[in-house]
């Protein structure tokens, strides 16, 4: 049988966690909605140059600063492929989108620590570029 005291203590801890988290979560959802509505999806394709290394880097950067459902990144990625953007650049774009979160960086910093948020997002960005290249190389070898 769970003691009343333990139940109360768990409830208070959860409420404290909610008090800290809810303003941050509301802020992130508001910010994502604002960016999603202000930046037209077609704008992405104008940023690629056709040079592989530059495009991989561009894909990673654009993906990292974008926000929203991962499904949107697949749809945009599919459109970019149709427009002739390289597989590596599109992969870097998708990986940047799903593994790096510039928009939610302030929230991550507030809840998990600034240093953790910066290091994790920085490492994830570099890994997005590395995985993009490795995926294309692996697919070419298969």
């Amino acid at each position: 049988m769970i003691q009343k005291q333990k139940l109360k203590s768990a409830g208070v801890s959860t409420l404290n966690s909610m008090k800290m988290s809810i303003p941050v979560l509301l802020g992130v959802i508001l910010l994502i909605s604002l960016i999603t509505h202000l930046v037209p999806k077609k704008a992405f394709s104008y940023l690629f140059s056709g040079k592989l290394v530059f495009d991989v880097l561009t894909g990673g950067v654009i993906g990292s600063i974008s926000a929203g459902n991962p499904l949107t990144s697949y749809v945009i990625g599919g459109e970019l492929l149709k427009q002739g953007i390289s597989f590596a650049a599109v992969t870097a774009f998708i990986l940047g989108w799903v593994t790096v979160g510039a928009v939610q960086l302030p929230a991550e910093g507030l809840m998990l620590g600034k240093k953790f948020a910066l290091v994790r997002n920085g490492v994830s960005f570099l890994m997005a570029l590395a995985i993009a290249v490795l995926t294309v190389v692996t697919l070419g070898a298969l």
């Binding site: 802020g27 910010l31 604002l34 929230a107």
Partner: peptide
């Protein structure tokens, strides 16, 4: 608290967007 300052900054961003692009801001 930093969490409320963050929310206020986002509200300010909405206020700026409302001036620059009211329809997109309303959609957002």
């Amino acid at each position: 608290g930093a969490q409320w300052v963050f929310l206020i900054i986002v509200a300010v961003a909405y206020a700026v967007a409302l001036v620059l692009n009211p329809s997109a801001c309303a959609d957002a």
